[in-house]
Every structure is written in structure tokens, then in C-alpha cells.
Amino acid sequence: MDLNIIWFILITVLFIGFFFLEGFDYGVGILLPFIGKEDRERRAIINSIGTFWDGNEVWMLTAGGAMFAAFPNWYATLFSGFYLALVVMLLALIARGVAFEYRSKKDDPVWRNRWDWVIFVGSFVPALLWGVAISNIIRGVPIDANMNYTGNFFTLLNPYSLVGGIASVLLFTLHGSIFLSLKLTDTLLDRARNVAGKLWLPATALLFVYVIFGYFDTDMFSKLGVNPGVIPILAGVAILSVGYLLKIKKEGWAFVMTGITIAFSTVTVFMGLFPRVMVSSTNNDFSLTIYNASSSPYTLQVMSIVALIFVPIVLAYQAWSYWIFRKRVSTKSKLEY
């Protein structure tokens, strides 16, 4: 196995970490105005991800940085090609990050309510756009022989990518509602459970629509075959089991299962891409691959050593932070945000 493949896998892992972790805190942000009726409740909800959201977001930054370092042409084509979509996403992320920190710093209902909706929009937009972006990467976008994107903003808005966007919003929101079921108490807990129960069916249904759509609209079918293998099947089984697990109030397991669905769906997408990193709809030969988009062997070596040392350390301290703040948050807790 060469370093290009290892870096393809590592970037897959970074995206899994990003979608798994930011997935639930996007979900929590989307649910905030609905599950939290009054101020103290909303504060409890924000505080349930208060310790973690910033660290979670770094997964996205690291994935972006790793793309830049290991596959500069991928980074260049994707980020310049999807320009306007990314601008919109950045605006959402800017507003969202500030909102968490600033919301509770003024004791003014209007001020707080405004920030709550900023958190909602700031979570909804990236959840949607990441689904749209990933769908377009796998579906293929017009890319010329010089690796330049030749489409425009509207090229990215096609039925398949929009279904993908809505599916990712629903999946992340479900994931977030289950996370809240694990972190909240009393009435808030009941509401989170209730929402999770209601979200499961539409999220699951849309995910399957997306998969079926994908077999027609992408080359996943020819790549993965009629029997797609164990990973995509497990992703499907996991999301199916969530409905039952929620019914018997096994939220811990349900969270593991939505996590598996997110992780294995991400793996499936990257398997479908491999060895490409961006599909060209203009000409298959123009697709970016882990070879024509990559850095030099030397840079990949250096980065491999760095990643080998630091990824485990990061995982260890981040897991530890989840462990020390594992307690549920109630409206009576000491709230920082």
C-alpha cells in the first residue's frame, strides 16, 4: 500500500470524525429553538455541547488542512470550484461559532432569541451543504483537463445533491436528538426522545432514497456492484435498528448506531470514489485521483510521521474531555454558556 492510499484513508477518517462529531452538534444546533422552549432550557441544550463543539469543528479544519497538504490539487479544485457554496457555509460557520459564545452574555430575551436562530441557521446550512458537496464530488462535476472546475454555482444544485443535502440534515438532526437524549434530563429529555422517535422514519426513508438515487445518478453501481459489500449494508442495518432501539429507550446503542451509519456511509462514499478524489463529468480521464492530485512522496512521508504521532494523542485527549464532562446537563446545572 503506498502513501497516497494511506492519505486517502486518513482523510476518510478525518471526515468520519468530522461528520460523527460535528454531525451531532449541528443536529443540536438545529433542534435548539424547538426542544428548548424557554431560556434556561436552551442554555442547557447549548451547554450539552458547550465543551465540545469547538474541538469538533477542528476535525473539519484538519480535514481541510490534510487535503491541502496531501492532495493540493483536490483542495484547489474543490475549494475554488465550489466557491459560492463555501462562502455561504463560511458565513454560517462564522455566525454560529460566535453565537455559542455570545448568546448568554447579555440578559436580554430579544438578544438571546436572535442568537438562537443564528445557531439554528448556522447549523442547518453547513449540515445541508456538506451533503450537497459530497454528493457532487461523487456524482461528478464538470472539470477540464487542467483540473479546473468549469461549472457554476447552479451546477451544484441538482436533484441528487439536494436529496443528499436534506438526507444529511435529517441524519445529523436525528444523531443530535439522540445525543441530547443522552445528555439532558427531565422534560428536556422527554422532548429529545420524542423528536428522535419522530425523526427516525423520515431520516431513514430519505437515506434509502438517496442510496437508490445514487445507483442511478452516480457510477457507484458499476463500482460497488449489486452486492455492495459489508460496509454499506451495515450502514443500512444500523439506521434500521435505531427505530427499535429508540422504542426500547436504549439511546446509548441508538447513538452508536447512528454513528455507525454516518461512519460507514462516509466510507462507502470514499470507496465509491477511490482512487479518484473528484469525479469529472466532462471526461472520466480528467477526474482527480490520489495520484494526479497528490503531494510529492517526500511531503506525504513527512505528513505521515506527523499524523502517526499526533492523531492518537488528539484522539486520547479529546476522548478524555468527553469522559470528564460525561454527566447529563439539566436546567439546574451550573451553566457556562
Binding site: 474541538g55 484538519t62 488542512g65
Partner: peptide
Amino acid sequence: GAPLAIEALLAFFMESTFLG
């Protein structure tokens, strides 16, 4: 790209996690 990726991996994770 390398220093940027290392910055995220080494520094951003550290400051954000421990700030939380």
C-alpha cells in the same frame, strides 16, 4: 499545505479542546 495541516492537528485541537 503541510504547516497548515500540522497547525490544525497540533495546535487547533489542543487549544479548542482544552479551552472547553
